[in-house]
Amino acid sequence: MFLTKQFGLLLNSIFTVISLKMTNSIGNKEIAQQIRRDIVRMVHAVSSGHPGGSLGCVEYFVALYGSVLKHDAKNFTMDGKNEDLFFLSNGHISPVYYSTLAHFGYFPVKELATFRKLNTRLQGHPTTHEGLPGIRIASGSLGQGMSVAIGAALAKKLNKDNSIVYSLHGDGELQEGQIWEAAMYAAGNKVDNLICTIDYNKRQIDGDTDNVLPLGDLRAKFEAFGWTVLDIKNGNDLDEVIKGLNHAKTFIGKGKPIMNLMHTEMGFGVDYMMGTHKWHGSAPNDEQLAKALAQIPETVGDY
C-alpha cells in the first residue's frame, strides 16, 4: 500500500513534469510558427532583408528566449546584471531576432510593421542606436560578435555574476579572421561562461560554403583551439535545440568555452526557400508571399 502510494506520487510527478514540458513546448511551437510568418511578412513588406537564415534559426531563438535564457524582458537594462545575455553576431538575420524579442515581451509586436522603414527602431541590422530593448550591440558587419560576447563574459566574471553569455554566428561568418582571434582568446583564457552557437546551414550569399570557401572540419578546428564542441543534430527541432542548449549549460564553469554546431536548413518552413542559398538575402513577391503563408498558418496573431 505504502509502496503503491509512493509509486503513484512518483508517476504523478513524472506526469506533471512531462505535461508541463509539453505545454511549454506546444506554446513555444505556436510562437515559432508565428515568428516564421512574421519573418516572411516583414521582408516582403519592404522587399528586402534576409529570410533564409532567419527561418533556419527560429527554433534556436524560441528555445533561447522561451526556455533557456534567464532574462527579464520588461525591465531591460544594457548591463543585464544577473541575467543571461545574448549577442547576435550575424546581424542580417534581424527579422527572427526582432520577432522573437517582440513575442517574448521586449516591445510591442505591432512594431514589427516598421522593420527597415524610415525612423524605425528595427533597423536593417540590429543596433543599440535607436534604443530598442533587447539589443546590446550593433551587428551586421560580420565576425565581431564573438569578441563582444567574450568581453561581456569577462565582465560577468569580474562582477561575480554567474549568469551565462550566449552568442549566435553564421557559418559563412567563420570566414572572418576575427572569429579565430576570439576563438584563440576564449580558450586560452578559460572563458567558460560562454556558449556560442554556429548556424551550420552550409550556405551563404554566393552559394554553398563548400564552393565559396570550404569551412573544413569545424569540430576538429574548434577542438584544436581548445573548445568543448557539441552538436545539435537537428537545429529545426525545437525540443532538440532546448535539449542541446541545456546540455551545453552542463559544461559551464569547466574551464573551456563551449561551441554548439547547430545543423539547420536555410529557409526552413517554406518549401521553395529550402535546399538553396537563393533566399539568403531576397524577399518574396506577392505571389511567393501567399505561397509561403499558406504553409505557415497564423497562430498567436499577425502583427
Partner: peptide, 26 residues
Amino acid sequence: PERFFQIGIAEANMMGIAAGLTIGGK
C-alpha cells in the same frame, strides 16, 4: 592583474572584447 587583459596580437578582437566589457559597467 585581475583587471588587466593581455589580448595578444589581435587588435580586432581587443576592440570587440573592450566593447563587450562595457556591458556590465566596466
